[in-house]
Design a protein around this nucleic acid. Sequence first.
DNA 1: GTAGGGTTAG
Length: 679
Amino acid sequence: MNSAHHEGVYYIKKAKDFRGPTNRADNGVLVGGLWSPVGPIECISLSKALGGTTIVAVETVVGSFALPLYDHINDASDQIFGSMKSQNPIFDHPTLQLLEKCQTLDTLKQVHAHMLTTGLALHTFPLSKLLLVSSTLAVSYSLSVFNQIRNPTIFLFNTLISSLTSNHNHLTHIAFSIYNRVLSHKTLRPNCFTFPSLFKACGSDPWFHHGPALHTHVLKFLGPPYDHFVQASLINFYAKCGKVSVSRYLFNQIAEPDLATWNSILAAYAHSSCSGSGSISGWAASLSLEALWLFTEMQNSSIRPNEVSIVALVSACTNLGALSQGTWAHTYVLRNNLKLNRFVGTALIDMYAKCGCLDLACQLFDQLHARDTLCYNAIIGGLAIHGYGRRALDLYEKMKLEGLAPDDVTFMVTLCACSHVGLVEKGCRVFESIKEVYGMEPKLEHYGCLVDLLGRAGRLKDAEERVRTMPMKPNAILWRSLLGAAKVHGNLEIGEVALKNLIKLEPETSGNYVLLSNIYASVDRWDDVNRVRKLMKDQGIVKVPGSSLVEIGGAMHEFLMGDKTHPHLKEVYLKLEEMNKRLSEYGHKPRTREVLFDIEEEEKEDALSYHSERLAIAFALIASHSSAPIRIIKNLRVCHDCHVSTKLISSIYEREIIVRDRHRFHHFKDGTCSCSDYW
DNA sequence: GTAGGGTTAG
């Protein structure tokens, strides 16, 4: 082969480094999207000359740099690539180094002018750098640079698309218009580098519906076997738009998943199970369990989990409240020398906090080196749900002192922290600061927190006023917190308004009807209770059964209200009887008002004492060590009677009982609860 | 030039 024919052949990697299907290559030789003047025949000879190493990507960059390649032709390794790079005036061109350092558009323009005069701007690699840098400084400039390129290669189209989708979520429409130019191009075709960034952009509203069409393009332009990058982005896309089963189907098609595709499917299950209702439903729990199961399958394969896999595993444990497995994941990180980076750190902080081990969460937070806003959000949120409002506010201040900017989530968890302990004035100031100090517009969620803050504190009129004057339409969550506040403070008028709106938005959620009927029951309006009961019956709405999980010896035990299925049923009910007896010795009188329907008083008492957490506590008292705290995870909120009884039980049996309910934690100890009865 | 990762009101 005559080196004079070479206009430069770069991007050579050993075939063994190239995992997965090879439709990057045509006939075993390819072509990073661009047809090199070298041509396939020469590439094959080159491949042979390199001792059988497959050339997986060929790119024409600029003339006269083929020679360094020949100098190293017998040593086919990444070193070749490295030394080629170092000897290649294009890759390390001083102008490109200048380009990387550009901080302003003006300096960028100067560098660009220089590139035009020296001819550097005629070549793909320098142009791609120019596009990347300019897209971070001024997108319009990078678009004008792109439009000036006479024959942009697919490499440059891809560079532009990826820079548009990674830096600017709001520019997805431009990315798609660029993609359409590829589609209408006479000779260019999208390749495996084109799709992943586009699927990433489709992973949020309102772009979901573009995904399936794009998927057909993958089938049309790439064909099997599919590139793993593309597969991973597809799995991720379908999970994000709620179609985990499609993600799973695609994953199952992959003969040998690599790390990225394993991680995609793990994240798909872990993430899908935490979005949605916010509490554990059977469906969400089964998705998280599947993530745990997939993780063990991954360990049985030849792929070693990395930090990304651990993050998904830990998130799944958080959703399940599976403290043992979550702790195991923590030790896995330490044993296998994985990095405890901010991703893993935040996931673990969240896991410990949401599994009831706030102390461990705080310790871990203190140990974390590179903390960012998300780490703070996780710990502030953790403190909030455990009812440590002041500590949460202290960290909120500390975060700002560290120079970190609060984001939407920070405001949300901080407001929530104020709300849980009744720090009304402080919370209102935080809310006002969103606009006044940070120049951001409060979102629906922030109004929701504010309404909750005011409502819980009994300022129902103020809360209602906020709802009426807020700039956007209230959602179901907001109406429900107003309804909850109306119930606590016995305000029927506001409760009825809230419910009317709530049922319009969520006609099938049983909890809404239960809340209203409890309001009626609390003022002995049994006719209205019956009316709600009939309404539910007519609409075919079934009350969600209360469920409590408790972990004993590493196994999760689930109890449903009035459960008759547990293997230790007999002992549990005997213990329950004993507990009820001791409770009444301590003067406890069941508060029966909150039982949904007008049944006989004695039956009501029964219904209360068979609430799922009572069964779980009874079992834990029998089956766990007497010094260990009892940790319970509920799917609904703790009812008033259970709250009173559990306080007493903690003192009678001298046990610490930690209950995670639908909204927050209650630490019962020595007859009191950490929520100070404000929940 | 491409993928997969943490926090989110009630």
